[in-house]
């Protein structure tokens, strides 16, 4: 396997991904990611010098509209699925001591 994924890398990616992996899951993730990257490295065979990255297949532009409110008060609907709410707001764990 060409791509050896270190514990440090997996821990770092775990922070980016906001995932807490068990020691077992970490080992599996190292293997899986290494294999996938080996596979993705195949793209290196292609010379893409001068090729623009294509994020969208059509030449789409940003869609603009006038800055006016078009919807009504949807706060009740927005909160309907909240795991925690208080006084018409999302309730989250304490963030500032």
């Amino acid at each position: 396997m060409a791509n050896m994924i270190s514990d440090k890398t997996i821990d770092y990616v775990g922070i980016l991904a906001k995932l807490e992996l068990s020691p077992q899951e970490k080992e599996q993730a190292k293997k899986d990611m290494g294999r996938m990257l080996d596979y993705i490295d195949k793209l290196g065979e292609l010379d893409t010098t001068g090729v623009e990255p294509m994020s969208h297949v059509f030449p789409v532009q940003n869609v603009f509209r006038e800055d006016v409110v078009t919807n009504g008060d949807e706060s009740k609907a927005a909160l309907q699925n909240a795991p925690g709410m208080k006084q018409n707001m999302f309730k989250v764990p304490r963030t500032v001591e």
Binding site: T9, I10, Y12, V13, G14, L16, A17, L19, L21, E25, A29, D32, M33, M36, L37, I40
Partner: peptide
Amino acid sequence: GPEVKRRIMLGSFVLS
């Protein structure tokens, strides 16, 4: 689940 986590991890890596 495991497949979703696998892809989130890979995606986070290739964007890092």
